[in-house]
Amino acid sequence: MRSENAIEVSNLTKYYGKLLAVDQISFEVKGRELFGLLGPNGAGKTTTIRMICGMLRPTGGTVVVAGFDVSQKPEEVKRRIGLVPDISNLFGELSARVNLEFMGKLYGLDKKTRRERIDHVLELFHLKERQNDLVKYYSKGMHRRLTIAAALIHQPEILVMDEPTSGLDAQTARLVREIIIDLNKEGRTVLLTTHQIDEADRLCQRIGIIDRGRLIALNTPEELKNSTEGTRALEIKVLNGVDQQRWLAIIHEAEGVDNVFLAEGKIRVLSKDLPEAIPTVVNLINKHGGKIENISVTQPTLEDAFINLTGKSIREEPMSKEDYLKRRLSRSGMR
């Protein structure tokens, strides 16, 4: 291999007309690494991935996969990547086996190899009994398993997964995460995107945080958490009074408070100077007639780091019209 890095992205930029979707992103994924791109909806994750896989032409910048420039040798790159898209895109009118057969043919596998590999992945993902059923009758979890299986048919060295667990129930999501970890342990490089902070934290060896088309941080989960340096978190549960959203607005005005947001039903306050902030916040809550049920100081989480970096929470952010447009553009098949 000509380079140690599995994927090298430099100054990657994509405009959809006048809409800037990806803004000069640079990062590299090391061989055998489990790398995650974390960011909210519309951050440019899917667009980035599609450019890496050679399905979308960048407006600027370069992508080198396994030593091959995507714009010059797209087919060499595609041969080395297994792509798992965020929505199942198998042929619903065909059976699982026929779907996998087709993929195997496109990747130039001969008949014998195809049969062996298909048997292997069907076994691996517990789809053997249903292999001759039409895919459209599959459950969501089976769909996801089969999309992963289809991406492995040509035994790629790099696996690219777009939101691998989104839309799955907790149990299937856990199963998919286990599969991802296993595939990485087998020696495959994995690049995944996610908008779930805990997932990135649990799975990835390194995380790139992406927001509004820009890569704003890149480090190990631990280092990212440490990047909140000096910042500490206060968790408060307020019993009654105004609704939680309004508490956020009230607390935000308090002296010494850097950021405040909701996490699992509790109000989370980030501050560089907690001793200063605690009495002010408590006083404010009391003044507005709130009763504190629980208050505690905790270690900063990855979400705290994310909010510190982006200034906003990753959750419950409504999609703007622009985000919707970008989503449509990045997903509408050919471009």
């Binding site: 399905m55 595609k78 198998l90 042929f91 496109l106 990747y107 997903r331 509408s332 098949g333 050919m334």
Partner: peptide
């Protein structure tokens, strides 16, 4: 239909000209 269902991506992601 392939475009709208996303199955076209499958072919696009494969090493096919």
């Amino acid at each position: 239909w392939d475009k709208s269902l996303g199955v076209f991506d499958r072919i696009l992601a494969a090493p096919v000209s």
